[in-house]
Write a protein that binds this DNA or RNA. Sequence first.
DNA 1: AATTAGTCTACTAAGTCGATAGGTTAATTA
DNA 2: TAATTAACCTATCGACTTAGTAGACTAATT
Lengths: 134, 134
Amino acid sequence: MISKKTKYGLKALVYLATCPANRPIPIADISSNQGISQKFLEAILLELKKQGFLSSKKGKGGGYYLLKPANEISVASVYRALEGPIAWLPCVSINYYEKCDDCPSEEACSINKMMLKVRNSVLEVVENQMISDM
Amino acid sequence: MISKKTKYGLKALVYLATCPANRPIPIADISSNQGISQKFLEAILLELKKQGFLSSKKGKGGGYYLLKPANEISVASVYRALEGPIAWLPCVSINYYEKCDDCPSEEACSINKMMLKVRNSVLEVVENQMISDM
DNA sequence: AATTAGTCTACTAAGTCGATAGGTTAATTA
DNA sequence: TAATTAACCTATCGACTTAGTAGACTAATT
């Protein structure tokens, strides 16, 4: 299961992708349109801005807009930004690799190979799924 | 990311699958062999027993043993038992389906289809991956 | 009777989740 | 310049989950 943060973040980005490019959309628009708590969405969009997905404009006529074309934003990149590692275990993560405490070696680990399979299978989908496709 | 509970549960089942069939293995054996806190493992094995994966025998010569052949226990079933839904969202879950609060309809939902793709991709792997394969 | 090994209850510290409240800053417009 | 708009920031919250630990109890074997 993914958090509502990631879910809302994805929906917000997809919504922004459907809006005329380069015109800022206020948080209130997005939240009412997508059924998301406005205050919660504020924090999410701010995070997406800090991670380079969005930019914003203050004041009247302001709002958020995509920094990159929607067909260059993968679900994988959004997931990593908001949710963290895509892999099921740190020891099979590409971007968040970490050794396991309980495994003497990864070759000896009984579940390592199957965890790699799961990771690759998910990546296959989310790396190729762009915000513009949705 | 999955919890340590699920990770340890999987490793314990795989370990039991490598042991001579029908001979009970004490928790202490499994925990020392797999580098898992014994007390934590106790709770996990008990849960797997209650869910029908394992049975146990008390007293000397006792321990846990698999109730089904290892090639009939899929990673998917263990994941569901210990971790919960495999899908990223309840609205695309087979075994734990639930409607979303924020979506008027699933056809109208912008991320529903891609969530289905992810679910199917993961299922493809874990439904066919058996404890005996590892 | 002693030992072994699973079972049960309770408790904990730390962290996360999803949200709310209220004030601040910057840009536009009248 | 004043008012309005909308992003930004800080703090707080209750409920829940995680990964354990401690200790007593029960059942089976020797």
